[in-house]
Structure formats: C-alpha cells, structure tokens
C-alpha cells in the first residue's frame, strides 16, 4: 500500500493531481485507489492537499496516516505536511517555491522547477502536470501511459496537448534526475505520444 499526499496552495491544481493519478491507477493500472481532499475554506488559497491511498486490494481506510510520498508545491504546504512524511519516504518539491529544511530519516528529496518549466512551455497553469510527470518518473508508482490516458475529461479539451507536453517535460526531467538518461529519439517519442 502506498499513501501519497499532493500539496500546494489553492489554484495550483493540487486536487486535480490526485484525481488524475487516482484515475490512472484505478482505471488503467488495475490498482485500487481512493482519493480524499482538503475541503472547505481551507482548500482555497492557503495550504491545500489531496490524498491518495493506492493498493493492490480494496482500500478500507480512506485517509492517509503516514504518507510515503509527499509532493509540496508551496512553502506553506511543505511546512504543514513535511513532518507527516514517513522515514525513508520520498519528498518532491518545486525547488523555486520551497526551501527545504536539512534532510532527516533517509528521506529521498527530489526537486524540480515545475512552475518555471511550465512557464517556459507557455503557461504556468500546467505546473501541476510538469510535477505529475516528474513524480511519475521518480516514484514509478503509476505508469506514464496510464497517466496520459487519464487526462481527457480531467483537463479542458482545448488544453489537452499542452497538458501532455507539460507531463512529458516533467517525466523527462524526472528520468534524468534518477539517472535513467533518455536518448534524444526516445525523448522525442515520449513527447509525441
């Protein structure tokens, strides 16, 4: 069982991250996934989070207790949720938006300039997709094919290509980060997929 928390501030598409990953896992990767989200006034503007419990069997307890993976796209979210992350967990941050504390308990830290890369691709609104691509590559919890299949219906149709571009960019940077450098042609395939 894997517990994942996506966090950031309201408006960054944090809930959407949980929805996309949950749909990818439960419809296309044959896993069980349950998503819950922070809800109400606290979900708007300040630290916002969506939680995903992933399992090979039916998920009983719907909330996360000790997440193994934390994605933080804002300082406030990082400050609020970092202490929950379990020992040996994976921490993924937007390095332009989060200043991490010194590492603890063998937590693996991965950082990506998700918002900046999204701006370079033309729209910062897809920062969450860059982050999802990066997350997919470094954690391998979900397959990139399933993630891309999950996008239609969860992102506006006219921005589908842009969202896929964002995902691919994040995925590529993620693979580079963990040392599986892709060849140029492979990367090209990745982008055109």
């Amino acid at each position: 069982m894997t517990e994942i928390r996506f966090s950031g501030f309201g408006g960054q598409g944090i809930i959407r991250c949980g929805l996309i990953t949950g749909k990818a896992l439960s419809l296309f990767d044959k896993k069980h996934a349950t998503m819950t989200q922070s809800f109400g006034p606290e979900a708007r503007g300040s630290a916002c989070s969506s939680q995903l419990v992933v399992s090979d069997e039916r998920v009983l307890y719907p909330y996360i207790t000790k997440p193994g993976i934390l994605i933080a796209m804002s300082q406030e979210a990082y400050d609020k949720y970092e202490s929950d992350l379990q020992k040996d967990g994976i921490l993924i941050i937007d390095e332009d938006l989060v200043e991490p504390k010194p590492p603890r308990d063998n937590i693996k830290l991965y950082s990506v300039q998700s918002t900046r890369l999204a701006e370079e691709l033309g729209n910062r609104i897809i920062g969450n997709l860059v982050m999802l691509g990066f997350f997919t590559a470094v954690t391998a919890v979900v397959s990139p094919e399933a993630m891309k299949k999950a996008l239609p219906g969860l992102v506006p149709e006219r921005f589908l290509d842009l969202n896929i571009k964002g995902f691919d960019k994040g995925y590529e940077v993620g693979l580079q980060t963990i040392g599986k450098k892709t060849t140029k042609t492979k990367r090209k395939q990745e982008i055109t997929k």
Partner: peptide, 10 residues
C-alpha cells in the same frame, strides 16, 4: 456521509 460523498473511487 461527507467522507463517502467526497471520496473519489472507481
């Protein structure tokens, strides 16, 4: 209840 109402699953 709120938990089931707002819970996303397949």
């Amino acid at each position: 209840d709120e938990c089931v109402g707002h819970m996303h699953e397949k």
